[in-house]
Design a protein around this nucleic acid. Structure first.
Lengths: 223, 223
DNA sequence: GCAAAAACCGGCAAGCTTGTTTGTTATTGG
DNA sequence: CCAATAACAAACAAGCTTGCCGGTTTTTGC
């Protein structure tokens, strides 16, 4: 991960989680908060947003509910921090995927899609999806979620542009290709329990093929 | 809508909602039940699965909660009926789209995608999406939702095959194209509040173009 | 050391949600 | 007409969730 990537990541770093050079108490506080946020992600993944209660998070984190409410006064505060943390973690994983990609010299053209696909199989994306869906019907949640989500997409696009300089001749193609991959793969994730696995594999290959063609310019608008 | 379509639709018809030739009391009961189910769909769309309470549904339906619990003894019973009703309504709209398509002689190649896209803007799909996401983290809900969802996909595929006989030379292409359109469009729906509208329009066009190419056979596996 | 602050724990009240129960009105079949 | 049944309404109990408050232990700064 190079300097620019690290700077992009630092731009998304949640507040109150940098324990470097602090007192022992501060460091413990940060550690507890991370434990709580990780527990919250587990809850979102396993029980969904609607059934993610403060009680459950505290139990999964292994601390009392009173202790948790000391760190996050209200549930809304906690959820806001979970959003920050989840977005940060997703970007961290994404940049790690980009970095590994550069090392392996990109053996195939679907590398970008593979990174996205792998990122959608993790805990953080499951939590992100729960938050994204809940934000559709919860104005308060949307107010804090949507800006973060948009910033994530923006940062991710910038990193994709840096990682695939060979697309430089098609500036508009970047955003289109990224949105396309995200839409197709997220749609697949939603139907994961509904569709047959063989169909999902075939679809994955097809999307990869279209990406390769888009990159070659074979899918430019005909007019 | 021809006979075969009507038969496919009848196959998905919910139980206890056919009031033909019954007594006046029976017909009123059916009408009340439909009112409840429609109110439940509204609740799912506006407040999401997690905040859809029996109280809210009863209020939105304009009847007392006691009256509602007379028709649906438990919340689970109600949700099960909502799933049946939603799936039925979605198929009804889909078949209506197919029928209108035949009349207008399919002016463009993206007609199939347009039908799917329009269907995803309706109330029923919003409710369906809420149920699909909730089923991912709710085993009880999944047990009753997943079979219905799979049956819907199966029926829809059969109707697509009937509606587009010119694809007959590519049997495997049907399922792939349908899954592809669904995944891409559902992914777009999820990101509807996050992405810029212009990007969504561009992506919609791109997906349509790939569908056209898939139909022409230009996107067949290279090997 | 020692007072202040921070981390942590347990319990409590208010509100909401679900399911049950009891009662009232309207409709059906004989 | 009348008993049985269905549709509808209101109240109640039990459980859960959230936020708040007092109390305890540990750490920090002077």
């Amino acid at each position: 991960m190079d300097d620019i990537s690290l700077r992009a990541l630092a731009q998304l770093e949640p507040e109150g989680l940098d324990a470097e050079g602090q007192s022992w108490q501060q460091r413990k506080s940060v550690q507890t908060r991370i434990t709580i946020l990780e527990a919250a992600i587990d809850c979102l993944q396993k029980h969904g947003y609607g059934r993610t209660t403060t009680q459950l998070i505290a139990e999964m984190a292994g601390i009392s509910r009173g202790a948790m409410l000391h760190h996050y006064a209200t549930k809304q505060d906690l959820i806001a921090s979970v959003i920050d943390y989840t977005v940060y973690k997703r970007m961290e994983h994404f940049l790690e995927g980009i970095r590994a990609l550069k090392d392996s010299a990109r053996i195939n053209e679907m590398a970008g899609m593979e990174i996205s696909w792998q990122s959608m199989l993790g805990r953080e994306f499951a939590a992100y999806l729960e938050l994204a869906i809940a934000a559709r019907t919860d104005a308060d949640l949307a107010a804090i979620f949507l800006p973060k989500a948009r910033r994530f997409d923006k940062t991710e696009l910038a990193e994709v542009i840096r990682a695939f300089p060979e697309w430089a001749d098609d500036p508009g193609g970047y955003a289109l290709a990224m949105d396309y991959v995200h839409a197709a793969l997220e749609g697949m994730v939603i139907n994961r329990d509904i569709w047959a696995q063989a169909d999902q594999r075939a679809l994955c290959k097809f999307v990869g093929r279209t990406i390769a063609m888009l990159r070659r310019g074979d899918l430019r608008p005909p007019e």
